[in-house]
Design a protein around this nucleic acid. Structure first.
Length: 493
RNA sequence: GCAGGCGUGAUCCAGUUUGGUUAGGAUUAAGGCCUUCCAAGCCUUCUGCCCGGGUUCGAAUCCCGGCGCCUGCACCA
């Protein structure tokens, strides 16, 4: 169990993450990554890329701009639909979503209706504020996108992108040609997205500028997706919370009959990422199916990846697995006039999209939340590959040439790993510092080192030590950090 | 956005009710002494009243405005 304030305090004090522009009082919804947080984030992104691009030779990274022109987001539906029509009560100034209040008071669903029509309905039916019976104001359109003007005349309207996906969709056809028409085709990207949230809350969980890591997979159902049947491990188990059920089930994906194979395949891959690579325990991961009400209209199948975070009060979304059908490419084809269809057996077919979407900041927070222990000692348990420092080097005491010897060891390790050297305070204090920032291994140079060229390696999880010769130190640390080998293998030797 | 609470060194907190010496403690951090392995001890040291106005001889304290955070409501394509 982690208290959010305690975790935020460590993050600030040690250099992970904190509110942005804080010397000017800050601005809600923006966070900075400090020197440790930046490394953690970069490492997470590297592991994400290695894993998701690694599952198929035809999955690739691309990068696209943060600013998108008006028409791109008109096509995607964000200009019209990524907004709420609000009304305020003139008496008590309570604000409401106009469609919700009309629905509540009249029972009519008016989704997609324009502002003027809504005002008409409010007036004709003499609808009043439910809490004080006051009259409503005129409607106010609130779009969640940050708008801006491009160029000196300001005539070109644009937006900061509300999701990275649109840049990827617009590149579908060019990459389809550049990748020599291989399908299925995956285009991944990592980048910033921007949403002018009404009230950012809960630290990095809801931000106005945030990082997304997304993989868009393009294929034609019934044609390219059969490819996944060969790769598919039907016995792989995932923890699922189905819509309408209230218990999580740990089931092999082969039992999910009503979900297509390509969906099950990627569902399992996402689960594998969190369990095997983020090293989160099964109990902390679940894939939750969204109800029809929660689901966006274009998503045919939608499970969220949820991680149990005690600092945020329980299960929180860190990613989504969306089968979006042909919605995106169809919309861009309509708006742009550019062909998005590909030839299949003499006919032209618009490919479908399977989207794996992750909030990077939320994932970083999930690692910190799940990894931080404060019971007997404060220590951070994160995957070795994620750790800001892989290894630290200490002189046991500051005399008799031990400092110099430890610097030699440090120099060698630092050319192979992210290493850290510290002579300040007692050795126990230095272990404690490394515990707090998740450095998995600490190497200590002592008097035995002077006699026989051995050093100790201390493991963060168990606090146990092994003694190895300096000549094999790099190999041992390498196998501990990057290899399959775990500390106890060495310890029992 | 609404209601309530809050904002004091890097972190956490006392002090604000009733305005008045050099704003106090703990932790952390830096330098040193000591030290043969898990935040030991000793000495020294750095950093603070969220921002801007106002009242007053005098403001961390009272008033106004702003910013931020927390809880609840609302919101979260």
């Amino acid at each position: 169990m982690v208290d959010r304030e305690e975790l935020e305090s460590v993050c600030k004090r040690r250099g992970f993450i904190w509110p942005s522009s804080e010397i000017y009082g800050g601005e809600a919804g923006f966070y900075d990554y400090g020197h440790l947080g930046a490394r953690l984030k970069d490492n997470w992104e590297d592991i994400w890329k290695d894993f998701f691009l690694g599952i198929d030779d035809n999955y690739h990274m691309i990068y696209t701009p943060n600013i998108l022109p008006y028409r791109a987001l008109k096509a995607s539906g964000h200009v019209d639909l990524f907004s709420d029509v609000l009304v305020h009560c003139m008496r008590c100034s309570e604000s409401y979503r106009a469609d919700h209040i009309v629905m509540e008071l009249t029972g009519n669903n008016i989704e997609g209706m324009g502002a003027e029509e809504i005002e008409d309905i409010l007036e004709k039916n003499d609808l009043r504020c439910p809490s004080c019976n006051g009259v409503f104001s005129e409607t106010e359109d609130f779009n969640m996108m940050f708008s801006l003007n491009i160029g000196p005349t300001g005539e070109h309207k644009g937006f900061l992108r509300p999701e990275t996906a649109q840049g990827t969709y617009m590149n579908f056809f060019r990459e389809y040609r550049a990748l020599r028409r291989q399908m299925p085709m995956g285009l991944a990207t990592i980048g910033s997205a921007f949403r002018n949230e009404i009230s950012p809350r809960q630290g990095v969980y809801r931000l106005r500028e945030f990082l997304q890591a997304e993989l868009q997979i393009f294929f034609v159902p019934g044609v390219h997706d059969t490819y996944y049947e060969e790769l598919y491990d039907e016995d792989q188990k995932v923890r699922l919370l189905r819509d309408g059920e209230d218990e999580v089930k740990f089931v092999p994906v082969k039992e999910l009959d009503e979900l297509p194979i390509f969906y099950r395949y990627h569902l399992a891959k996402v689960y594998e990422f969190y369990h095997d690579h983020m090293e989160l325990p099964h109990e902390s991961i679940r894939l939750r199916e969204l109800s029809d009400e929660e689901k966006a209209f274009y998503n045919l199948i939608h499970f969220d990846v949820e991680i149990s975070m005690s600092s945020l009060g329980g299960w929180k979304e860190v990613g989504g697995i969306h089968y979006r059908g042909d919605y995106d490419l169809t919309k861009h084809q309509e708006e742009s006039g550019t062909k998005m269809s590909i030839p299949i057996e003499g006919e032209r077919v618009i490919p479908h999209v399977m989207e794996l979407s992750f909030g990077v900041d939320r994932n970083i927070w999930a690692l910190l939340d799940c990894g931080y222990h404060s019971k007997d000692r404060d220590w951070l348990s994160i995957p070795n590959k994620c750790a800001p420092y892989h290894v630290a080097v200490f002189p046991l005491v500051r005399k008799d040439g031990i400092i110099e010897r430890s610097l030699d060891v440090f120099t060698e390790l630092n050319s192979n790993f992210r290493a850290f050297w510290d002579k300040s305070g007692s050795v126990g204090k230095r272990y404690a510092r490394m515990d707090e920032i998740g450095t998995p291994y600490c190497v200590t140079v002592d008097y035995d080192t002077l006699d026989d060229d051995t050093v100790t390696i201390r493991d963060i999880k168990s606090k146990e030590q092994i003694r190895v010769n300096i000549s094999e130190l790099v190999d041992v640390i390498d196998s501990l950090v990057f290899g399959e080998k775990v500390f106890n293998d060495h310890f029992s030797e």
